[in-house]
Design a protein around this nucleic acid. Structure first.
Lengths: 120, 120
DNA sequence: TGCAATACTGACTCTTTTGTCACTATGAAC
DNA sequence: GTTCATAGTGACAAAAGAGTCAGTATTGCA
């Protein structure tokens, strides 16, 4: 099975999935939109202060291209643009959740290690 | 909350998780080890023919460093080394599964798009 | 007139990640 | 003594990704 998507080849649907969620800020953006929606760019920026605007916009564009999020532009000045997860984007909820869970569990194993280092 | 791990700072456990699973072949390796274990390097190579040996070894080393996999060296010649998921590594099962599921669903949406393009 | 607010884009650099190639070690079998 | 198998390492090149900085547009308001 070979999947052709955006001029690239993927040999498994897993690889395709990874190409969609792989990006420094994508999981974080999706996480934000799962918790509060819709969000404006300026709001996402506040929630992810370590990402600079240019990066966020790029990641948002890619997510939009992949139809993970939708972008609605209000015809007003100054501009108002709202982002929300699409139906397909909502399918990422289990992915984000399981990553968060793993993160928590992994963090605990690190902490225990540190403890035992201190004890030793 | 700031997590210090391997000389880097992580602001959420989610970011920490991403640092552990982020790597061109890591999810694929974990997927393999979830389906069949233990595996030797040469066996993983056969399952992931697109990854070259050097890359696989690098990813395996990183996973080992993060204690996601264990590496057992048999004292024989020619060398025999077995890799398997650690207890912590097994916690990644939901992550891999949800990514696979999403990949399948995402693939279907692409296929439908292609259909409608053909129809239009 | 000029500044504020919002959501951008372009062009560039820097860093990280990935990929490639050549090379090593060991002992058994021929 | 040459060759095979396995699992590796080192050094480098190429590519991808991330980050930075300056700039744009619109309109209302002081």
């Amino acid at each position: 099975m070979v999947i052709h998507y955006k001029d690239k080849q993927y040999f498994t649907s897993k690889d395709l999935a990874l190409s969609v969620i792989g990006g420094r800020w994508k999981i974080a953006i999706i996480w934000c939109l799962l918790h509060e929606t819709p969000l404006r760019l300026s709001e996402i920026q506040k929630k992810l202060p370590d990402a600079n605007q240019r990066m966020l916009i790029r990641q948002l564009r890619e997510l939009e291209e992949d139809k993970i999020i939708t972008r609605y532009v209000y015809p007003v000045v100054p501009p108002k643009v709202e982002y929300k997860l699409s139906e397909v984007g909502l399918l990422l909820e289990p992915v984000v959740t399981s990553i968060c869970n793993f993160g928590d569990q992994f963090m605990q194993t690190i902490e225990h290690e540190t403890d035992s280092t201190l004890v030793d």
